[in-house]
Design a protein around this nucleic acid. Sequence first.
DNA 1: CAGTGGTCTAGACCACGAT
DNA 2: TCGTGGTCTAGACCACTGG
Lengths: 245, 245
Amino acid sequence: MVQKGLDAMDNIYLTIYNQLVQQIESGRLRPQSKLPSEYELTKMYDTSRETVRKALNLLAQNGYIQKVKGKGSFVLNVNQMEFPVSGLVSFKELTQRLGKESRTKVISLKAMAPDESVAAHLNISPSQPVWQVIRTRSFQDEAIILDKDHFRQDIVPELTTEICEDSIYEYLERRLDKPISFAKKVITVEEPSEEDWELLDFDGYPMIVVVKNYVYLEDATLFQYTESRHRPDKFRFVDFARRYH
Amino acid sequence: MVQKGLDAMDNIYLTIYNQLVQQIESGRLRPQSKLPSEYELTKMYDTSRETVRKALNLLAQNGYIQKVKGKGSFVLNVNQMEFPVSGLVSFKELTQRLGKESRTKVISLKAMAPDESVAAHLNISPSQPVWQVIRTRSFQDEAIILDKDHFRQDIVPELTTEICEDSIYEYLERRLDKPISFAKKVITVEEPSEEDWELLDFDGYPMIVVVKNYVYLEDATLFQYTESRHRPDKFRFVDFARRYH
DNA sequence: CAGTGGTCTAGACCACGAT
DNA sequence: TCGTGGTCTAGACCACTGG
């Protein structure tokens, strides 16, 4: 699994979680170091132990810390931010966190009827209109990733080139107040299409890594289907998994 | 992210979690259907609401259900078991759940000093001995996956061909009482090595998917490093990720 | 022994959806 | 309004680690 979220609010436990994440990612809390005990955290945040524990459990499940009975909670070095595919974080958020230099180029943006395959992936009728956005992502002046997004038009009524160049997620959550809730990714390796050859700096690679991304709103509506096509030499995906005993 | 664990015990919330997982995976609880309300579950399991909620939160984080305020908890169809790489579940457990026909062949098993690269991955000195296990996994008589495991010998003192053909995880947890706690996977795509050509049924694929797997015990000791090399046409990885608001 | 995390409880108040 | 999930509390008891 992976880092899986952002943003704070008035929740106490999410505030604690986000502050600790920030401290771990910034290096202020070093790997191997011990967090304050749960009791100490209840005093620091003036809250109850179960609330503190909610925050720590989130940290543990996302690979930031390991809790050891009788000893304490310790920072793991397992969860360095990873690029370019990692959890449910937008491209803009990722590049910002990593301080990477990147460029997004909008190849095309249009409202259309979905083709059969896209309609099937989005689980809608082919008569229901969608936005199609095709973008490339470049690093050091090489186009490495080809993103083909499809959005249900009834949920995202308006979309502009400016929004696509910036961050569609930000637009959805901040402007449209449609918070994204969860996503499923499927990673496979396929033969490159002509489009891949055309739009990416391909250097003759014989295969391409395809990340299919299904994105859902809080009421479990599937509203976005994206295919992210990555040049294999630049692809890297990190997963963190816990076993329950 | 992914399904991430197994096994019940005397925990109430893990019992609830495992029973609901079982009902969802078996199809007895269908996608879209509504779970009993938290209040009803407290009566069914004769426990408190926070305990029920712990179970439901695990289900939500692992992609089994979506909770909707004011309405209830609903089964997602997002988390069909996936093959062959998915969370922290052993190969044996996966094939058993899926009823897939597979064969594991032990190519070599030996105690040795780790080479530089393995020592670095395991974060140990090159003088510290390890077990090296090389296995292939076949489906329909095609060798599709090459697994190269390395175990710290101070933690796994004994290993036999029989154990490697069955399940090393089962041996560790049941016989040695060393419960596995978490793992980090790194997925990349590389050029095949001569060993890949030799040991896999390769059909001329020009690239190979490499899954590096770092496995930790409950005290956060890194004790296993595995490289899983997959023929690209048979590779598929599924991730489930949630965003916190 | 004291300090730590793991589990569980019984109850409170809130926000949302359906009626 | 009622039933749902979301957050929070104050306290209990247990199991493990360490001195």
